[in-house]
């Protein structure tokens, strides 16, 4: 099978949320010695982009978006060991993501993490109820490009600002792009915090991170 044809099939399997088929095609790509970077970008990547488009159009909803992302993650686990020599060019960037201290709402953050990971980012999901200091420390350890901080409550969203403040205190603000998420977050709040951006949905979050990464 030509790589173009395989990519089309992979993309379709992702859009159809057919996990078995997607994983089988990933294995076939590995066994056939195909250019796996091409497969990731034009097969799996294309599929996940299409799912994002379908979500935009109101055809696909969050559970399906999540499943698409999870299938993508599992496929990447198969493909990554074979991509070692290309990992530099493959990896789009490192994202450390967490829900802020005092807040146990993790779903929004998890969806964003899944979608970023599905789009080729190395995502370190620290979970929920994470202190601002710890988020910064982990970002430094992971050599992250982007820090994502989620808050669902107006009472905990102040912690988002704290993350930016700590980065400033330690004089490392410019090393990271900081993005915020969660229901109470608005553009105004992002400005107040001195963060770099926010998005309203997981699909938009991926677009935002791509934009921020390229504006580096």
């Amino acid at each position: 099978m030509s790589i173009e044809k395989l990519n089309v099939e992979i993309s379709e399997a992702i859009v159809n949320l057919d996990k078995e088929k997607a994983l089988e095609l990933a294995k076939r790509a590995i066994a056939s010695g195909l250019n796996l970077l091409d497969v990731v970008e034009h097969g799996f990547g294309e599929g996940i982009r299409k799912i994002g488009d379908l979500w935009d159009e109101g055809e696909v909803f969050l559970p399906e978006l999540m499943l698409g992302g999870n299938i993508m993650q599992e496929a990447m686990e198969l493909l990554l060991p074979h991509l070692k020599e290309h990992s530099e060019s493959f990896n789009r960037g490192v994202v450390v993501i967490a829900t802020i201290e005092g807040d146990i709402h993790s779903i929004g953050k998890t969806i964003v993490g899944t979608m970023l990971s599905a789009n080729g980012y190395d995502v370190h999901d620290l979970g929920a109820d994470v202190p601002a200091e710890k988020i910064v420390d982990e970002a430094i350890n992971a050599n992250a490009n982007v820090i994502g901080v989620s808050a669902l409550l107006t009472t905990t969203m102040t912690g988002q600002k704290k993350v930016v403040d700590i980065l400033k205190e330690r004089n490392i603000r410019s090393k990271f792009k900081v993005i915020l998420g969660g229901a109470p977050v608005s553009r105004k709040w992002v400005e107040e915090c001195g963060a770099d951006g926010y998005a309203d949905s997981a699909v938009d979050a991926v677009k935002l991170v791509k934009e921020l990464s390229s504006s580096k």
Binding site: L62, P63, D200
Partner: peptide, 29 residues
């Protein structure tokens, strides 16, 4: 998983349990 959004039951049943609101109904942030 600490979430149920990706749980098989959610995926299988959300379209049956929920009315999928059209573009007239505002549920945006």
């Amino acid at each position: 998983t600490e979430e149920l959004l990706s749980h098989p039951s959610t995926l299988n049943l959300f379209r049956k349990e929920l009315f999928i609101a059209g573009p007239i109904i505002d549920r945006m942030s």
